[in-house]
């Protein structure tokens, strides 16, 4: 079981992810509405894994990964991408994201990503 921070500006997406994650037996320790929020919550909650939407107000997900990596270089971030966001995903991986999942999420993919990331 891992402690997870879910980041997405859409409440619906957060609900959906939370649902999948809790059914997989993980604990969602917090939710963030944008990149900046996520950066602060990572500092506060020290989650095992962070899921990170890409397009968000205030600070986008790619920038958030960069910021998080600055103070926690081993942070495990899974990007939540939509189709057609290749370049942003590439940027995120270059910035240090560990894996990515593509919307709409399937429980299997989420589980795989978590397993691989938690190694």
């Amino acid at each position: 079981m891992a402690r997870i921070l879910v980041t997405d500006d859409a409440l619906f997406m957060r609900m959906q992810l939370k649902d999948i994650l809790s059914k997989l037996g993980h604990e969602v320790v917090g939710e963030a509405e944008n990149g900046l929020d996520a950066v602060n919550k990572v500092k506060e909650l020290q989650p095992d894994v962070i899921t990170m939407d890409i397009t968000m107000p205030e600070m986008d997900g790619v920038q958030a990964v960069r910021e998080i990596k600055k103070f926690n270089s081993t942070a495990k971030v899974i990007m939540c991408s939509a189709m057609g966001q290749q370049n942003m995903v590439l940027d995120a991986i270059q910035a240090g994201a560990s894996d990515f999942i593509v919307k709409p999420f399937s429980a299997d993919r989420v589980q795989e990503a978590l397993e691989k990331v938690l190694g």
Partner: peptide
């Protein structure tokens, strides 16, 4: 696999 590029990049 939908985003093949980033996957291959990894």
């Amino acid at each position: 696999c939908i985003l093949k590029g980033p996957r291959a990049y990894m």
